Computed example of a mutant assay.
Amino acid sequence: MAELSKIEWCDHTFNPWIGCTKVSPACDHCYAEARDRRFNPRSGHWGPHADRRRTSAANWRKPLKWDREAAKAGTSPRVFCASLADVFDNHRSIAPEWRRDLYRLIEDTPHLDWLLLTKRPQNLAKLAPARWVHDGCPPNVWIGTTVENQAEADRRIPHLLSIPARVRFLSCEPLLGPVNLLVTDHRGHDISALRGIACDPSDPDGPDEYYRTGKIHWVIAGGESGTGARPSNPQWFRDLRDQCTAADVPFHFKQWGEWVSVSEVEGPGDHHTFPDGRTVRRIGKSRAGRTLDGVTHDGMPG
Rank of each mutant, 00 (worst) to 15 (best):
A2F: 08
E8G: 10
C10H: 13
H12I: 15
N15H: 06
W17Q: 03
T21M: 04
K22N: 11
V23R: 13
A26C: 05
H29L: 11
C30T: 02
C30V: 02
E33A: 11
R35W: 15
R37N: 13
R38D: 12
P41I: 13
S43M: 12
G47A: 10
G47V: 09
P48K: 04
D51M: 11
R52W: 05
R53S: 12
R54G: 10
R54K: 14
S56H: 14
A57S: 09
A57G: 12
R61T: 15
K62S: 15
K62P: 06
W66K: 03
D67Y: 10
D67A: 09
D67F: 00
R68M: 14
E69F: 11
K72R: 15
K72L: 15
G74Y: 03
S76L: 14
R78C: 13
F80R: 03
A82L: 08
A82M: 11
N90C: 11
I94P: 01
A95Q: 15
R99P: 04
L102Y: 02
L102T: 01
L105F: 10
L105E: 01
E107G: 01
P110E: 11
P110V: 05
T118V: 01
T118N: 07
K119E: 06
P121K: 07
Q122P: 09
P129F: 04
R131W: 14
W132S: 02
V133D: 07
D135L: 09
P139E: 14
T145Q: 00
T146E: 09
T146L: 04
V147E: 00
E148Q: 10
N149S: 13
Q150A: 05
A151Y: 12
I157N: 01
P158W: 03
P158N: 06
H159M: 13
R168P: 01
C172H: 08
C172A: 12
E173V: 10
E173D: 00
P174Y: 02
L176D: 00
L176C: 09
V179L: 05
L181W: 04
H186P: 07
D190Y: 10
A193Q: 03
A198P: 06
C199K: 12
D203A: 06
E209Y: 13
E209V: 15
Y210Q: 14
Y211L: 08
T213D: 02
G214T: 00
W218Q: 00
E224K: 07
S225W: 05
G228K: 10
P231A: 04
N233W: 09
P234Y: 07
F237G: 00
D239R: 11
L240D: 00
R241C: 02
D242V: 08
Q243D: 05
Q243I: 05
T245Y: 13
V249S: 01
K254M: 11
Q255W: 01
V262H: 01
E266Y: 07
G269W: 03
G269C: 07
G269E: 08
H271G: 09
D276F: 04
R278Q: 12
V280S: 00
R281S: 05
G284C: 02
G284K: 01
R287G: 05
A288M: 01
T296P: 09
G302N: 13
